[in-house]
């Protein structure tokens, strides 16, 4: 995935990925009713998270010193990154089932990278529908943030989304790699998704110092949005980390992609199929 001299290979895989996505779209178009229903559910689900924030701010003027527009900024950027990650590689929970009922054997024999196959496995257009609400919240929060938009700050925004997406993809892939060895642990994927989404939707300060350090240095979800956001908002780090930490996101993103890639190939190597 991260091979340097294998650009051609990467391009081929990307083409295959798009091909598989197109096929998925065409088959999903057969079930229009389900499609509409899922999209509605996705939207309602996303609205639920937002409603929680709304209800909190109906009772509080600010949360730990962060105003509604700032929390909306955090929520929007986090939800956007996770939605993008899911749109690209999918929930991957299916992988556990695949391995368990032996369908993985076929996947491994096809001449397409396993990750591309898994990512497109049950690609459905509603994965894209999931992007709508976070994008809207993100845009609205940008408009209402009391921030002086210097070019540096503006430049951070796309980087923030990109790195956040990369980190959340690597989290998903890294956990999914475990499924090759322990296929019944697919709950872990949903748990990591839910947990990291929850952790990044609110100011990290509310989780206390210990938890915040854990989420910065061990599971680097703080770099999904919290650290760059502090930079954008022009706030000093409440835990005393230096001001440039927010700019380290690209490095963290690359490192986590690398780690996830290593974990993934190790996982495939350790795959031994069902029946053992």
């Amino acid at each position: 995935m991260t091979g340097g001299g294998r650009l051609g290979l990467v391009r081929d895989e990307a083409a295959l990925y798009l091909l598989l996505v197109r096929a998925a779209f065409r088959s999903a178009a057969q079930y229009r009713v389900s499609l509409v229903m899922y999209t509605l559910v996705e939207m309602a689900g996303a609205a639920l998270d937002l409603a929680t924030i709304g209800i909190i701010f109906a009772h509080l003027p600010d949360l730990d010193g962060f105003a509604l527009s700032e929390v909306a900024f955090l929520y929007g950027s986090s939800a956007l990154a996770f939605a993008l990650a899911e749109a690209l590689v999918g929930p991957l929970d299916q992988l556990g089932w695949q391995i368990k009922d032996g369908r993985m054997d076929a996947t491994l024999t096809r001449p397409v990278s396993v990750l591309v196959q898994c990512a497109t496995m049950d690609f459905s257009p509603q994965r894209l529908g999931r992007l709508a609400q976070p994008t809207a919240v993100f845009a609205v929060s940008l408009a209402t943030l009391p921030v002086d938009w210097s070019p540096g700050r503006v430049a951070i925004l796309p980087m923030m989304v990109l790195c956040g997406t990369m980190i959340s993809i690597s989290l998903a892939v890294g956990v999914a790699a475990v499924l090759f060895v322990a296929p019944d642990a697919s709950v872990a994927i949903a748990a990591v998704r839910q947990g990291s989404a929850l952790a990044t939707q609110y100011p990290l300060t509310i989780y206390g110092r210990r938890m915040a350090m854990l989420l910065t240095f061990v599971f680097p979800v703080a770099f999904v949005n919290w650290q760059p956001a502090l930079f954008v908002l022009g706030r000093p780090d409440p835990f005393g980390l230096p001001g440039f930490t927010g700019l380290l996101s690209p490095l963290v993103a690359l490192a986590s992609c690398l780690a996830a890639g290593i974990a993934w190939s190790a996982g495939i190597r350790h795959y031994r199929g069902e029946g053992g």
Binding site: A182, P183, D184, A185, S186, V187, A188, A190, A191, V192, Q194, G195, L198, A199, Y207, M211
Partner: peptide, 18 residues
């Protein structure tokens, strides 16, 4: 399903704490 049990113990603890 040992791994599933283990994974859900951990994830439940994390979600509860958050």
């Amino acid at each position: 399903y040992r791994a599933a049990v283990l994974a859900s113990i951990v994830s439940n603890i994390v979600l509860t704490v958050l």
